[in-house]
Design a protein around this nucleic acid. Sequence first.
DNA 1: TCTGGGGTCCTAGGACCC
DNA 2: TCTGGGGTCCTAGGACCC
Length: 420
Amino acid sequence: MIALVDCNNFYASCERVFKPSIKRLPVVVLSNNDGCVIARSDEAKELGIKMGAPVFQIEKFCEKHQVQVFSSNYTLYGSLSNRVMKTLAGFTPNIEVYSIDEAFLDMANFLGKDLVAYSVQIKKTVQQHVGIPVSIGVAPTKTLAKMANRFAKKTKKQFGVHVVQTAAEIEELLTKTEIGNVWGIGAQHQKKLLSYGVKTAADFVQLNEEWVRKNLTVVGQRMQHELKGIPSIAWDESPPPKKVICTSRSFGQLLTQKEDIAQAVANHANKCAAKLRRQKSCAAIVQVFIHTNNFRTQDKQYYPSVNMQLPVATNSSSEIIGYAMKGLDLIFKAGYNYKKAGVIVLDIVPESQVQFGLFDTVDRAKHKKIMEQYDQINALYGDDLVRFAAQGFSKRWRLKQERLSPCYTTRLSDVYVVKH
DNA sequence: TCTGGGGTCCTAGGACCC
DNA sequence: TCTGGGGTCCTAGGACCC
């Protein structure tokens, strides 16, 4: 049996942990640049605020209904996520952290136990230790556990815990789950399946396997097995190193000057290099892209990108920034209103397996030492203390974050002081 | 004025090889 | 009329996830 533990309205719940005064008020969290809604508390959902709603459309409405609006604070969410995962890890030796707010727990060791009672205990412990409410679904496969979790959230029976074990319980879950709510069925597949009269997960299970394979590829076939109770999705306790790493942002305002965009690209390139070093990998291709804003139909549009092939794979910030700058030179054209820039590093290999070049002119040992020092200093004093010249100091490309909450758990000056 | 960001997996189709 | 047949590798694009 597998449990899926999912934090309820995670970002919104995080904002509440250190601000109990908003416990019963509607809360929403915005995307980068305060663009649109990406998380809502139950109260905000009940008010009818939609996921992805653009801020400018709901601003007045929020004011009227006392909706508490926050810019996203990923430092805070990441820190609270770590605490939740640590707490969960105390319950089972086998845990797969699936995303910032979800984890699969292997319950094989607890089959003799009352799984409902055990799940309730997990839920209560997380609430007590971290202050984040979670829902728990337990079932024989990951896909069924996902569905059970949805059920737990929706019905609110048994403190947000739902266990599905017997054939009859599975059948009930399948019948009550609409096809579009099955994990792995998105809008496109939903539309297609509905046109064939497949309305629920139970209908989907009945479909001919060959047909599923032809129309939904092997991914669909795997889903069908999972729904039948046959585990078909691998268990990944330590996530494999990433094959592609991307850092991109929309600018806080439209930009036309190459110098401003170059600073943004340099910062993104630096972030990519740091992510590579964290997973002990190097990349051999640096891709740079810039975008105009396609919502502005009155503007000329331009979406160029370029791949820079490196002679030797690297994770040195200065090298990756250098190639990214050259890439930007190749694609930048004056006369456009740019909205976004990004850097992607690909062709990633483990640090230990880098193929060295015969005519390599870079002092790699030196680069490595510099980057180690750099990472250490920035880990101690914050990400921006030591900087590369190309990163610059322009504020123009920076995110709009007008409603940012404090970093209660990670920045010393933001930690609460308890008076006594 | 204003619409997120970062990933994965799979397949089709082109280039190229013998 | 009719134009080999199999491979492999790579890339772009679609679909999905949170």
